[in-house]
Write a protein that binds this DNA or RNA. Structure first.
Lengths: 127, 127
DNA sequence: AAGCTGTATCGAAGTTCATCTATGCAGCGT
DNA sequence: ACGCTGCATAGATGAACTTCGATACAGCTT
């Protein structure tokens, strides 16, 4: 439960650290900056739909050429959003011949889910 | 510029809907817009730290007067960030006398966690 | 080699955002 | 009633973001 492709960024630090915080102990400044970058990547409707399409496609790869026509946006714009998702560590890309395929990095969404999950901590029940 | 008064917000629609999507089926446009607003609220280091402080305090309420001094920002700026978190449905506020207290709305973070959780789909066993 | 197609990068334009100071409002104490 | 303190709102400013068209790059195909 430790190693994974870190790909383009380092910001998975805050996400992959031993234990999720946020709802358990006060986030430190550095952690907050890293985490915010991931959430910011999710903070756009286009990117959310892209991520959703990538996560839910048949097989676990999608060709950019299948993503782009689903939006009313230019190809460079889609490319830009994919780049942000990639830099956030949410997806990875592979070029195969002419086409580029994107796939979800489930470890990252798993970490986010964990961070947002409040484990009913005993201390809380106490006092 | 004019529709700021959403009350505490309606965007829980996408979050509270019957079943989380995102990683399970392609997000529709409207859902993506609502969800993005919540993630966007989390996409700032100051707001993440605020949320974390609110979520992890003793008791489950924090006075604004305890939050503000923790940052190197003006009081109006903190107030603004708290407002965004509130409009995203992540926290709620109560005025008691002179002071205003904020508390986490755990249902919202729960929904986000669920949305980011992939139910191990059968196809996955194969790969 | 030359041309074609798919994708990424560049630079510009308009919009949104984070932050500040100044100000308003609410409740408390004298 | 008056002033003080805590918090919110208003307006301004500079930075960041989204989007575009133009262009560069990569890999086929002929």
């Amino acid at each position: 439960m430790s190693n994974q492709e870190v790909g383009v960024t380092d910001l998975q630090g805050a996400v992959t650290d031993c234990c999720p915080r946020l709802l358990k102990e006060p986030l430190e400044d550095g952690e907050a900056v890293e985490l915010a970058r991931v959430f910011k990547a999710l903070g756009d409707p286009v990117r959310l739909r892209l991520l959703s399409m990538i996560a839910t496609c048949d097989g676990d790869e999608v060709c950019v050429c299948d993503l782009t026509p689903a939006f009313d946006l230019s190809q460079p714009t889609i490319s830009h959003h994919l780049k942000l998702l990639r830099e956030a560590g949410l997806i990875s890309s592979v070029r195969r011949g002419t086409w580029v395929y994107y796939r979800l990095i489930p470890e990252t969404t798993d970490r986010l889910a964990a961070i947002l999950t409040r484990s009913l901590k005993p201390e809380e029940a106490g006092s």
